[in-house]
Each structure stands twice: as structure tokens, then as C-alpha cells.
């Protein structure tokens, strides 16, 4: 089965992509995720226009079911990001997706402008981080007009670089948000950011474990939410805009499920902590094995497969 995926003219050797926020701090880690880890593409952590401090530890905790993180999107700003991106671009091993974040519509545009000269393959716009809400209020991803405004601001400066909007599962209607972004020219979506936020309390001290009290939830438990959100966004945009499906993927079968819901590429993050940094290679191999067993020749035929099958059965029923 052919594993390569071409999205907006960019070819990924396999559909797995290092998700934003994980391992994304240095060019050395991106390179390792792509080269030895087997990631088909990599996404940077979220980059701010100005230095942004994160939260004190504990910032990341896990059980086998879930991970909560409230790292707080720490970043040194565009200058350091440019240095790391430049280092990665020398013999670039896999496509680079630049993730940006801002506290205002205007600064989304400015951050994109500051970094686009580094020629990322895609721009991913984080409008949905749940663990800086105390600082900035509800994320843009929970308001259709705000999400549309951010899309418009970024598209105004993005030129030919495809713009993916990273959506939140917390929106009342993720379909409505996706439609608003699509109207302003979004080229695709990353679905989903972490869920929640959630909270964990230590029994003896009676204190929340995360210093930020709450954190975005990831890990195996969130996969059904990701699948539903991807399906909603795919249906709302009639499958016309590619989706980077992210949320709870640990195995090849998980990845295929997200593709059937509508994903063209598959983000993987938390699974690194259970299956190792080469989880990308493992997931790709499992997808390949599954495809061959099931007689699937091209991954592309799986994308949105659930919607197609439901239509087919509805037609037959008539």
C-alpha cells in the first residue's frame, strides 16, 4: 500500500506528523523525530511574537489513560525560532509545519509575517490552546467570528503558504467554527487540540497537581472525541479542505480510524511517551500492514471513507 500523502502539493513520505507542542523546541529534536523516528512531517511548538513564559512545574502528568499538560506555551520568540528552523532546513528530512500562537488577531498576522521568510511548508494556527485561558480568556477557537478574524489576518500575509487552523474540541459547534474559517480562506484544519481542560487533585495535600491547576488532556482516552470532531469538520466543509487529524493516536488502526473520519495526515504526540520516539515508524508500518491485509492500495481512498460508505448505504437503502 502506498503510504505517501501529498497535501497542497507537499509530499509526506507517510501520513504521520509530529504534533505541535511535543518535542518541538529544537531543530535537533525535529530532525530526530523525522530521521530516526520516521515522522512523515514535523510541527514546531507554538511560536509567539514575543518571549512568553510558561507555567512552573508540575506541567505534565500522565496515567495510562490520559496526559494532562499545562506547560503554558513557553517560547523565546521569532528570533530563536528562525535559528532552529534554519538549522532544520539544511537537508530538510521531512516537511516542516510552523505553528504560531498570539494573544490578539493583529499579532497572529505579525507572527506569521515574522516567520514566513523561513519557508515552512504549512502554517498551523493555534487558536485553541486550553492552558493559557487564565491569561487570555476563552480561546479564539470557541467563537466563529474570532476564529474567522484570525484566519483572515493570517491569510492576508500567508501568500502561497497553506494555512491550517488548529481547532478546539471545546467549541459548542466545531463545524460552525470550521465554516467561519473556511469562508476566510483557510486551506485546511488541524483537529483537535487538547481536550478540557482537566484537573487532577493529590489526595493527601488536597492540592491540584498541575501548578496551573488545569491542563489540556491528551492520550488514548481522547481519540473518540477527535474522531467525532474530524468527522464534523470534514462533513461541514464537504471534504474539500485537508485535515491533520490529531488526538489519541497510538497505533496504525487508530490512524486509519481518523482517516476514515476525514483526516489526510495524522498528528502524533503523547504516544511518544508510551511507544517511544519512533512511534511514527511503528504507526506507519502498522498502517501498511493493515492496508495490505485489507487490500487497500492507496491511503487516499481511506480519507473520509466513513462518509462515503454512509452515503453509499443510504443510496442502496433508497
Amino acid at each position: 500500500m502506498k503510504l505517501t500523502q501529498t497535501v497542497h502539493g507537499v509530499t509526506f513520505e507517510n501520513p504521520t506528523v509530529l504534533a505541535s507542542g511535543i518535542w518541538g523546541i529544537t531543530a535537533a529534536s525535529w530532525r530526530r523525530a523525522a530521521e530516526a523516528g520516521g515522522a512523515g512531517g514535523i510541527t514546531t511548538k507554538s511560536i509567539w511574537l514575543h518571549e512568553h513564559k510558561g507555567h512552573p512545574n508540575p506541567t505534565i502528568i500522565s496515567t495510562e489513560h490520559w496526559t494532562l499538560n499545562a506547560v503554558g506555551v513557553p517560547d523565546a520568540g521569532p528570533e530563536k525560532a528562525r535559528e532552529e528552523m534554519a538549522a532544520y532546513m539544511i537537508n530538510k528530512p521531512a516537511p516542516l509545519i510552523l505553528n504560531i500562537i498570539a494573544e490578539s488577531v493583529e499579532n497572529y498576522g505579525k507572527t506569521a509575517e515574522a516567520l514566513l521568510p523561513m519557508k515552512p511548508d504549512f502554517l498551523e494556527v493555534n487558536i485553541s490552546c486550553p492552558n493559557v485561558e487564565d491569561e487570555f480568556g476563552k480561546p479564539f477557537a470557541c467563537s466563529a467570528p474570532a476564529a474567522g478574524a484570525v484566519t483572515k489576518a493570517v491569510k492576508a500575509v500567508a501568500g502561497k503558504t497553506p494555512v491550517f487552523i488548529k481547532l478546539s474540541p471545546n467549541a459548542l459547534s466545531i463545524a460552525e467554527i470550521a465554516i467561519a474559517c473556511a469562508k476566510e480562506g483557510a486551506d485546511g484544519f488541524t483537529v483537535i487540540n487538547t481536550v478540557g481542560p482537566g484537573m487532577a487533585i493529590d489526595l493527601r495535600s488536597r492540592m491540584p497537581i498541575l501548578s496551573n491547576k488545569v491542563g489540556g488532556m491528551s492520550g488514548p482516552a481522547i481519540k473518540p472525541i477527535a474522531v467525532r470532531c474530524i468527522a464534523d469538520v470534514y462533513a461541514a466543509t464537504e471534504g474539500k479542505l485537508p485535515i491533520i487529524g490529531t488526538g489519541g493516536v497510538h497505533t496504525g488502526e487508530d490512524a486509519i480510524e481518523l482517516m476514515l473520519a476525514g483526516a489526510s495526515l495524522i498528528g502524533i504526540g503523547t504516544a511518544i511517551s508510551t511507544r517511544g520516539f519512533d512511534v511514527f515508524k511503528k504507526v506507519a508500518a502498522e498502517m501498511q500492514e493493515w492496508g495490505e491485509r485489507e487490500g487497500v492500495e492507496d491511503l487516499e481512498e481511506l480519507v473520509g471513507g466513513m462518509h462515503e460508505e454512509m452515503r453509499r448505504r443510504a443510496v442502496i437503502a433508497k
Binding site: I22, W23, I25, T26, A28, R32, I60, S62
Partner: peptide, 19 residues
């Protein structure tokens, strides 16, 4: 270090990218 179990990537070193 933040997570301690290989996820956050804060302790990766140049140029190997090992945690």
C-alpha cells in the same frame, strides 16, 4: 526537565536530539 518521561522535549541535546 519538565515531564521526566521523554514527552516534552525540553532536555533534548544538540545535535543528536536525544532526551
Amino acid at each position: 526537565m519538565k515531564c521526566g518521561y521523554g514527552l516534552c522535549g525540553n532536555c533534548t541535546v544538540d545535535p543528536l536530539g536525544i532526551r
